[in-house]
């Protein structure tokens, strides 16, 4: 059973699959970047996620993006890895309900 219910404007329905695919790609890149300890690129991914998440209706993604950005600035590898896990978990258990605004 999926537990992360998200209500999204139905105008965005056609955009959501691509958006979520892009987040899977974020996770793959973040895992590679954390191995390389490339914190600047990690920060940029966090910053972008912070900017886009809420816009698409995923407020939690904005929250996680913000955390990634902050921890990348501090080069906090362990915390970043924890956040990446949270991100994966969230996306895996997503239930989207489209509604009129």
């Amino acid at each position: 059973m999926k537990k992360n219910k998200v209500y999204i404007d139905q105008d965005l329905e056609t955009l959501i699959p691509q958006y979520l695919d892009n987040r899977e790609e974020d996770i793959r890149r973040l895992k590679t970047l954390i191995e390389a300890e490339n914190y600047e690129k990690i920060r940029i991914i966090g910053h972008s996620l912070k900017g886009s998440g809420g816009g698409y209706g995923f407020d939690y993604l904005t929250e996680l993006g913000s955390q990634i950005e902050k921890n990348a600035e501090l080069k906090n590898r362990e915390d970043i890895e924890l956040i990446i896990n949270k991100l994966e978990n969230y996306l895996d258990n997503l239930e989207i309900i489209y509604q009129e605004d």
Binding site: L15, Y19, N22, G51, S52, Y56
Partner: peptide, 9 residues
Amino acid sequence: RDIKLLLES
């Protein structure tokens, strides 16, 4: 790219 698509729509 995500913001671009959002703004376009």
